[in-house]
Simulated scan of single mutants.
Amino acid sequence: MPFAAITYDIKPGHEAELAEIFGNFRRVRSSQVRDEAGAAAGTILATAVFLRDDTLVRVIEYTGDLEAVARHMAVQPGVREVEAKLKPYLTRPRDTDTVEGFVATFKRSLLRTVAQISARDNTPNAA
């Protein structure tokens, strides 16, 4: 299963406020991702958020098409709520008020994957 990580440039010294914002996060309505035509396009399996100083990173484990995942996230009430609450803590504004803006910001914030290893990907050899 692939992972994606997106960054947020934040003002340092607000770790408690940011932890509270993500601690009260409302899960997406459905982990099933659909494309614009309504066809199955993937699944959001898990997310995690990491914070240190002026960097916040959200990691998403998913299946399917990453752009469809971003579009799915863009319309979820909990994601929209978090993005709105983060605005005062950002050092660089994020245009996430529209689906197109969210997807463009998602792509711009995406960290390059350099390695992914999972025990789930390792099938033991038959003896």
Results as ranks from 00 to 15, higher is better:
Asp53Trp: 04
Leu90Ala: 07
Phe22Ala: 07
Thr43Trp: 06
Ala127Thr: 11
Phe102Asp: 01
Phe22Trp: 15
Arg29Leu: 12
Leu18His: 09
Ala115Ile: 07
Val114Gly: 01
Ala19Arg: 10
Thr105Gly: 11
Asn125Thr: 13
Leu51Gly: 03
Asn125Ala: 15
Thr55Gln: 14
Val57Asn: 03
Thr55Phe: 00
Ser31Lys: 09
Gly23Ala: 11
Leu51Tyr: 12
Lys107Met: 11
Pro12Trp: 06
Thr91Cys: 02
Thr43Ala: 06
Val49Trp: 12
Glu61Val: 00
Thr98Gly: 07
Gly13Asp: 06
Val69Tyr: 04
Pro12Asp: 06
Val28Arg: 06
Ala41Gln: 05
Ala127Leu: 13
Leu90Gln: 07
Val59Arg: 01
Leu110Asp: 01
Ile10His: 04
Ser118Phe: 05
His14Ile: 06
Thr7Asp: 09
Ala115Phe: 12
Thr43Phe: 05
Val57Gly: 06
Tyr8Leu: 09
Arg27Tyr: 10
Ile44Arg: 03
Met73Trp: 06
Val82Pro: 05
Phe22Arg: 09
Ala104Thr: 12
Val103Glu: 05
Tyr89Ala: 05
Lys107Phe: 08
Asp95Ala: 14
Val49Asp: 13
Glu17Ser: 10
Lys107Leu: 10
Asp95Tyr: 09
Pro12Leu: 07
Met73Lys: 06
Asp95Phe: 10
Ala119Val: 10
Leu51Val: 03
Tyr8Val: 08
Pro88Asn: 03
Tyr89Arg: 02
Glu100Arg: 10
Gly38Glu: 02
Met1Glu: 13
Arg80Ser: 00
Arg94Val: 15
Val82Ala: 11
Tyr8Pro: 05
Ala74Pro: 05
Asp9Pro: 03
Glu67Asn: 03
Leu111Asn: 00
Val57Phe: 02
Val59Ser: 08
Arg34Thr: 08
Val57Tyr: 02
Glu61Asn: 08
Arg34Val: 12
Arg112Trp: 01
Glu15Pro: 01
Ala68Lys: 04
Ala126Ser: 15
Ala19Gly: 04
Leu51Glu: 03
Gln76Ser: 09
Thr98Arg: 06
Thr91Gly: 10
Thr91Trp: 00
Ala39Leu: 01
Gly78Leu: 08
Lys85Tyr: 08
Ala39Asp: 12
Ile117Gln: 05
Lys87His: 11
Asp97Val: 11
Gln76Gly: 06
Glu36Tyr: 03
Ala115Trp: 05
Gly42Gln: 04
Arg80Lys: 13
Leu110Thr: 07
Ile60His: 00
Ala39Trp: 02
Phe50Cys: 09
Gly101Pro: 12
Phe106Thr: 02
Thr7Cys: 08
Glu15Ile: 10
Glu61Pro: 04
Val28Phe: 10
Val114Ala: 03
Ser31Pro: 12
Gly38Ile: 05
Asp97Ile: 08
Arg112Glu: 13
Leu111Glu: 04
Arg29Asn: 15
Tyr62Pro: 02
Gln76Glu: 12
Lys85Val: 08
Glu61Gly: 11
Arg29Asp: 13
Thr47Ala: 10
Glu17Gln: 15
Asn125Leu: 15
Thr43Gln: 09
Val75Pro: 00
Gly38Gln: 02
Asp97Phe: 12
Thr47Lys: 09
Ala127Asp: 13
Asp9Gly: 00
Asp95Asn: 15
Thr55Cys: 06
Ser118Glu: 11
Asp65Thr: 03
His72Ala: 07
Arg27His: 13
